[in-house]
Design a protein around this nucleic acid. Structure first.
Length: 358
DNA sequence: TCTGGGGTCCTAGGACCC
DNA sequence: TCTGGGGTCCTAGGACCC
């Protein structure tokens, strides 16, 4: 028996949930995003595998997606339905004997368990999730979380793939560093300037070079990523949110101050509703603003005292916006409220935990 | 071809204090 | 003529993930 980390990732999750209630669409290109209207400003949340064959990807503007595949079926995002499906999936995982479940997002989780044969355990998990929900998943097996997470990509769809210390460099060594979880375009470009292109080169880079280039915490972290090293501890401590926010993209850019004030007021009320639901006051206001066409800024201001007054939050956001002294049309506004930390602070072992959707 | 909405963490540097 | 050393708090800004 050894300790294993399994990473369970649902296949085309949002599209798959929609297909369950619209079986007549099975086999067709399906795109879930925005309000389901590809003429609006919105992006693809999930594309079915058939739609991906046309080059449609998550994060792509719906206007681009519809050009790539005019016959595709466009559906609106329906959060409550996905939340319910997600909860069903996570409960199925928790019901696996001996499993510890750390939820990472709507459609993925780490499962920690002791097993003599993790392949058998992974297959059992796939089958249990399918039986309970009608949804397929892929499972990555690893001796660390990082390896399990990356392994899943090689299993998709509906597959199982294992990545351990013994196979890490054989599978990942010659791949680009950006294939790693946590290395995106920007860090990839900075690594390239240091002459580091591949996972193997990153793994072998002198730590002092990485520290000099990326700082005391990030530098060594990148080196460990390159080696697939990291924790194998799966933690089921419930996630405690740091903040809640709302943002809105305007179909027509805002040019009038009254429109801006209205929008900030509405966003602030939504934020306060979320914070009040947790019974935690706001200590810092984050403003996000995108000026047409592509220029985005964020600003933060600490409040003199914690509050749940939407007018205080809206006024703070407006003051931050005024300070920018930029009267270009506004395409997006976001207000985020950072909350009073819980008694004793946040659980440091969960700092890498759940990001994104609940 | 045009850019969602929900999150989190890290680093640098200035202000201020002792 | 040269500018401590350590610490905290705060803001700006960058980056990443689902």
């Amino acid at each position: 028996m050894s300790r294993w980390v399994l990473h369970v990732d649902m296949d085309q999750f949002l599209a798959a949930v929609e297909l369950l209630r619209r079986p007549e669409l099975v086999g067709q290109p399906v795109v879930v995003g925005g309000r389901g209207d590809p003429t609006e400003r919105a992006v693809v949340s999930t594309a079915s595998y058939e739609a991906r064959e046309f080059g449609i990807r998550s994060g792509m503007p719906l206007k681009v997606a519809v050009r790539r595949c005019p016959e595709a079926v466009f559906l609106p995002v329906d959060f409550p339905v996905y939340e319910a499906a997600s909860e069903q999936v996570m409960q199925t995982l928790r019901d696996v004997p001996g499993a510890v479940v750390e939820v990472l997002g709507w459609d993925e989780a780490f499962v920690g368990l002791d097993s003599a044969d993790p392949q058998v355990a992974a297959r059992a998990i796939h089958d249990a999730v399918l039986a309970a929900t009608g949804l397929h998943c892929s499972v990555g097996i690893g001796d660390t979380k990082v390896r399990a997470k990356i392994a899943t990509d090689f299993g998709k769809p509906q597959g199982i793939f294992s990545l351990t210390q013994d196979t890490w460099f054989e599978v990942m060594g010659d791949r680009p560093a950006t294939a790693l979880w946590g290395i995106g375009k920007a860090i990839g470009a900075r690594l390239a300037r240091l002459g580091i292109q591949t996972v193997r080169q990153l793994a072998e880079a002198p730590e002092e070079d990485l520290v000099a280039a990326f700082g005391a915490a990030t530098g060594p972290h990148l080196g460990r990523l390159g080696r697939g090293e990291g924790s194998n501890h799966v933690d089921d401590t419930p996630w405690v949110a740091r903040a809640h926010g709302h943002e809105v993209t305007f179909q027509v850019d805002l040019t009038e101050r009254a429109q801006v004030e209205d929008a900030l007021g509405g966003l602030s009320r939504q934020v306060v509703a979320d914070l009040a639901a947790e019974g935690r006051a706001c200590i810092r206001v984050h403003l996000k603003v995108r000026f047409a066409p592509f220029f985005t800024l964020t600003r933060v201001r600490k409040l003199p005292e914690p509050t749940l007054d939407p007018q205080v939050i809206a006024a703070t956001a407006l003051a931050l916006l005024d300070k920018l002294a930029d009267d270009r049309p506004i395409r997006l506004l976001g207000v985020r409220g950072e909350m009073v930390p819980p008694e004793g602070g946040y659980d440091p072992s969960r700092t890498q935990g759940r990001r994104g959707a609940p």
